[in-house]
Structures are given as C-alpha cells and as structure tokens.
Amino acid sequence: MTQPVPHTARPVRRQRSASRSGVVLRRWKTPKGDLIVSLLTPQGKLRAIARGGLRGKHAGALNLFHHVGLQVYARPGDELAVIQQASLEGALPRLALPERHPYAHLLAELADLLFQEGEADEYGQQAFDLFAGALRGVAHHHDPEWVALVMSYKLLALAGFPQRTRMCARCGAADPQHPDPFGGELLCGRCSHQRALSPSSLDFLRGVVRRSVRENMDHPVPAEDRAPLWLGLERFVGVQVGRVRSWPHLHAG
C-alpha cells in the first residue's frame, strides 16, 4: 500500500497566504472604491489592496496610523497583495487632535519615504518599534512637537541618513555651529553668515542618534529654539531623501 508524498515535499500552490502586522502609513482610494494601503511592519514595508475596501468590512481597521493584523494573499506576478482579512490591533484616536495630527502625518510620510518595500533587513524590527513608539508619543506626550523632532532624526539615522555634525558640511572644518540653509547640516562660522545654533540645539544635533529616545525626550530643546532645527531637518530631508508634503502644515494646528 503506497502512502502519498509527505506534506513537506508537496508543491506550494501558486498562491501564497501570509499574516502580517503593521501600522498604516498611507492609504489611497482607487476610483473603483478599492483601498490601497502602505504599512510599516517588523518585516519591512508592505503595500496591499483591499478590494471594495471603502465600503467593506475592512474600512474601519484600515485607517491611517492604525496598527492592524492582516491576512494577505499574493499570487506571483500580482502587483499588490490582496487583503483578505484585517483586524484592528491598536488605534490612537488622539492623533486626530489638531495639535498632534500634522506630526503624525510627517512621521508616516517620512517612514513611507525612508523604507522600501520588501526590504526585510535586520533593522526591520527596530524601524517598526521606533515608528510605532513615535506615533504613541505624538498621541500622548504633552510635547508632541518634540517627539516628532526627535523621532524624525532617529528614523533618518536608522534608514542610513545620519547628519554630519562634527565637521563643516562645506569645508570640513571641525566643530561647526551654524545652520546650512541649503543642505540642512552644520557649517563653520566662515562658511555661513547665519547666527550660530543655541548650545542646547547643538548638543541635541550631536547627540540625538547616539542617545536613547528616553534621554532625548528628557532633555528637550526649548520650544523657542526649535525653529532652526525644523528648518535644518526640512532642508536635509529635501536634499537627501525627497519631497515631503507635510512640512507646510506642521504648525497649522
């Protein structure tokens, strides 16, 4: 009597199902009423489509910034994985508050730009934890602006875009202290005509990557000194990473 081929040797079907869990970075409506979402997961970024999502049972879970568990189904050759089931694992309703909403957008837009699809490298889990923590901070911390600033610099560094703070970005001189109006890094006094940054701002820029999130949060730069930091960040991202549409709306709330 012959037994069938054992299960492990059986060919995988053309289609693959997978479970993923992540935070919704963006969502697009297609004209047909489908929903395309981009998520950050511990295994990297994922884009998937929920058919009929705008009127379907997934619309609730697949909201911006929601942490969702997905069952996706991808056939080789399909451009996008199809979402079969979606369940909410966590929501931060306070991100809709006017003083917090724009920062959540900035962080999600940055994350969407910084991480590529299918890149499941060793930093995946770290990136996911950092981003999820950033959203939690923006939702609940009394100073969401500071959370956004710290976490933006942290995300940039993790994605391989650390700012140079030890040498002038133009001439290479040591100990630069002035903002670079074009590249967003630091310039020496000879290369820049702008006023030097405040000591606490300089300390922040030089330490943000190396220090823990907690340490950074505990030593905020005074609110009135943050404008040059935001400006530097915007320039740096614009030059190194790409266009971020949230900038003009950051201080609208």
Binding site: K29, G33, L54, R55, H58, A59, G60, A61, L62, N63
Partner: peptide, 9 residues
C-alpha cells in the same frame, strides 16, 4: 457610518 467610511459609500 462605519469607521473609515466616506459619506458617498
């Protein structure tokens, strides 16, 4: 309205 919905749906 269910959460996540647009009026037109």
């Amino acid at each position: 309205l269910q959460v996540g919905s647009a009026l037109e749906y």
